[in-house]
């Protein structure tokens, strides 16, 4: 088990190198540069002055040198400084990562609890009204884009009912209640599509297990329905559900951009969105690297979770 974890961790290095080279090449490929944006339109700045400013940020050097220099800093734990704000990328991440993580965890909570319950019930009572209702709800959940759902939620809860503020962010440490009030709507907007996918997966995973022979055996030896479900069905169905949930939640970390924009939340999605628009290269590089690392680590945790959930896998490795 330990060697497995170590091997996976060692694999992080080439993955991150690849991601960073790809990001660097891509972001430099887009036309435009940070300096001309900082000067703005309709100025009297000459091309020579623009070149001088670009030089002062080291942007005139050949790309491989810029990359290697950046890599050298990263190796020492320094993700560099934003061209735009002059703030260290690590400081900014310390501020913004908690926002996105909180949002993701809340969304996961809002999604998994109903998804597991309803998904299991839908499988157990297959072809019942509940099953059909759940199927329709899933269809809506998957088809409804989260930004549209966000607008509807704001319309209902903020403008009509006036229960929750429509936007903004307050740090948890500053005022936990206000923080949660402002996180509910964005988290709900993110959770519906997630819930739909999870519910569908739960239903089919449970159905799959229900058709297994050992379930029939369990029933045949006279176990009542509830204990069949808890002792035999759910533990075996947990594995595929955990896989999907893990990947979905990890993807959510990088998928909050639009919702953060709509609700004016200072998360990493918005940070990298602005950075790409402003061609703030160190920020794009740094955030991509961190998000990629988190993604790899979350999948690793899911893999470890397999072993916890399934004793057979523990001995197999």
């Amino acid at each position: 088990m330990l060697t497995f974890i170590l091997r996976r961790l060692a694999l992080l290095v080439p993955v991150l190198l690849g991601v960073s080279i790809l990001t660097f090449a891509l972001v430099k490929q887009i036309p435009g540069d940070p300096v001309s944006q900082m000067i703005g339109v309709d100025q009297r700045t000459t091309p020579e002055q623009v070149a001088a400013i670009r030089r002062s940020y080291g942007l005139d050097q050949p790309l491989p040198i810029q990359y290697v220099r950046w890599l050298g800093h990263v190796a020492q734990g320094d993700l560099g400084q934003s061209i735009r704000s002059r703030r260290p990328v690590t400081d900014e991440l310390r501020l913004r990562l908690p926002v996105t993580v909180e949002l993701t965890l809340l969304a996961a909570l809002f999604a998994t609890v109903p998804a597991l319950v309803v998904g299991t019930l839908a499988a157990v009572r297959r072809n019942s009204a509940l099953d059909y209702g759940a199927t329709i709800a899933t269809l809506i959940g998957i088809s409804l884009p989260n930004f549209f759902l966000a607008t509807l939620l704001v319309l209902l809860f903020s403008l009509r009912l006036e229960w929750l503020p429509p936007l903004g962010y307050v740090e948890f440490t500053r005022d936990p209640i206000q923080n949660l009030q402002r996180m509910v709507l964005p988290a709900l907007s993110l959770s519906l599509p997630l819930a739909a996918v999870l519910m569908r997966n739960t239903r089919s995973a449970v159905l799959e297990v229900l058709s297994q022979e050992y379930v029939r055996v369990a029933r045949a030896k006279g176990l009542e329905g509830r204990s069949v479900l808890w002792r035999h069905v759910l533990p075996n169905a947990a594995l595929p559900i955990a896989t999907v949930a893990g990947i979905q939640v990890a993807a959510l970390l990088g998928g909050t951009v639009i919702i953060e924009q709509i609700f004016s939340l200072p998360g990493i999605g918005r940070y990298i969105f602005d950075a790409i628009a402003n061609r703030d290269y160190p920020v794009v590089q740094g955030v991509t690297l961190v998000v990629a690392a988190i993604f790899v680590l979350v999948t690793l945790v899911v893999d470890i979770l397999y072993a916890v959930l399934d004793p057979r896998l523990r001995t197999a490795r």
Binding site: T151, V154, S158, L159, E162, P165, P166, L167, G168, Q261, I262, F263, S264
Partner: peptide, 18 residues
């Protein structure tokens, strides 16, 4: 001062008194 870049949300913010 807070930052509200979405047009719709800027309208919502003033209408709700946020």
């Amino acid at each position: 001062m807070t930052f509200v870049s979405e047009d719709t949300q800027r309208t919502n913010a003033i209408i709700t008194g946020e």
